[in-house]
Design a protein around this nucleic acid. Sequence first.
RNA 1: GGUCCUAUGGUCAAGCGGCUAAGACGCAACCCUCUCAAGGUUGAAUCGCGGGUUCGAUUCCCGCUAGGAUCACCA
Length: 554
Amino acid sequence: MDAFKQLAELIFPEIQETIEDLEKQYPPRSLKEGAQVTRFAPSPTGFLHTGSLFTAMVAKKVAKDSGGVLFLRLEDTDTKREISGSGEQLISQLAEFGITIDEGYLGDRDIGQYGPYRQSKRAYIYKVVIKYLISRNLAYPCFCSNEELDALRKTQEAQKVVPGYYGKYAVCRYLSPEEATAKIKAGLPYVIRFRSAGDHLRKTLINDLIRGDINIAENDIDIIILKSDGLPTYHFAHVVDDHFMHTTIITRGEEWISSLPIHIEIFNALNWRAPHYAHLPLIMKLENGNKRKLSKRKDPEAAVSFFIEDGYPPRAVMAYLMSIANSNFEEWTEQSNIYDIDKFTFNLDKMSLDGALFDLDKLTYFSKEVIARMSANRLASLSKKWALNHAPELLDLINRSNDYYEQILNIEREKENPRKDFAKYGDIYSHVRFFYHDHYLQLASGDLPFNERLKPETIQHFLTAFINENNYGLDNDNWFSSLKEIAAKCGFAASNKEYKSNPSNFVGHVGDAAEILRISLTASKNSPNLWSILQVLGREEADKRLQYVIEKLA
RNA sequence: GGUCCUAUGGUCAAGCGGCUAAGACGCAACCCUCUCAAGGUUGAAUCGCGGGUUCGAUUCCCGCUAGGAUCACCA
């Protein structure tokens, strides 16, 4: 046995399997021609990030549209940053946005033939590959301490050379197998590094599905592939996993482009065919006039929980994200009149190459459209579900009567151009609470915003007349005509024009009368049309309110 | 700083050698109107700069500039 094999044996005595064994265990997938295998590979380090949702959406569309599969792999090799429970949370948040996974880590279990799907459970697989690399002198143990590495970086910076563990600076790569063996036997801690054969002066062309050919220098850094805790680093784990899991297209953020040479080099060293890569543009945020990557720490909208908490319908969020991914999506929604991304044909070629600024106005627009198109019944049930966890004050109102709540939501809804009051479920409460008597009293307890031009007696007089003469049986148009008549009897001009031509003849105009009614009924100057409100409130409640105002003004 | 990516209105963008340079969001005005939310009409606003190539460049090439990403025993 040669020295490298002995070294490999010394380091991994427990590993008996070979790469060939693994190949047999994870045979190629049988999928139809053109079907793509993609993956979503988050780290369990917190809430789902908006950028991750974007990436997941693209991965899903690429897989689904081609009749392939999307699987989820949990990249939990960084035990220090791991937040327990966040893996499950990721899955459930993904599901809220309509991204369901058909293979891989599903929170409480794994599904699929290519697992385990948690990297922490794949240690033996990585070790099989690393054992092979060491035995071929393609990887080696490194005994440098953090202090030594820091010192190296400092001298490199001082000398203005490219920092990193490479070439002559990679001292442990020159250790003979015997020297390494001796250090290991002496109990020195170590990591395993990949022995790079690259030259950073040599450029290679790498094809990216979105960007085309990218011209990058080869990697020459001896990166760490196995940390001292026995788990691999991302670069290595990704290569091994996507090989054995037979991923065909890797969709990930563009921040990975710079480490692409590393990944390609590892694939090549193992004689494996690299998958295709699609590096997605990042979602950005404007701060002080500069764009920057959306940051989970600084930007509330960076975590998808923001949308969930405020009550943006998931469909609207996905529609917005899709409009960033494929700009023709917007055009498609106008024709199809739906905002369902599952029915849209996504195209990687149409991706923009530049990072898009997150635009809350645009999300608001999509969200209003989506909510306006829901039936009152659906909106009622979705918003109730949301209120259950996020808005106790709204839930209280809904629970008094689902029917009543639904009636309110139905105002000016079933028509060609429905109202668009709500961009999110969180907007509902303030728009509907005046419909509830106790809330109305609260709202009306202060000064009512009547036009100062109108005398209190005029208001009382009109309200009294209205109570006596209003006809609840009329339809909207006829009702308003009758309102005009009532107003006219009380000295209001029938039209604004008429009023303007001779103001001293009138106490006000119909608009004023309508405003009196509106304020008295809703405690606000703005509301949906009066007739609808009266229909929902009913005569008894309406009269109570008007009476309340009459007395209040007395 | 090295390397890579990117560059059309405030934002998202269409455009792929010849166009009055689409469209959407936002903004403004007007119309409609019982207010609001809508809806309708109109409008302001864009090819980063400098060189080439070409009869002709937003479009192709080269510089520059700007912005972004990345340079960990993090992913």
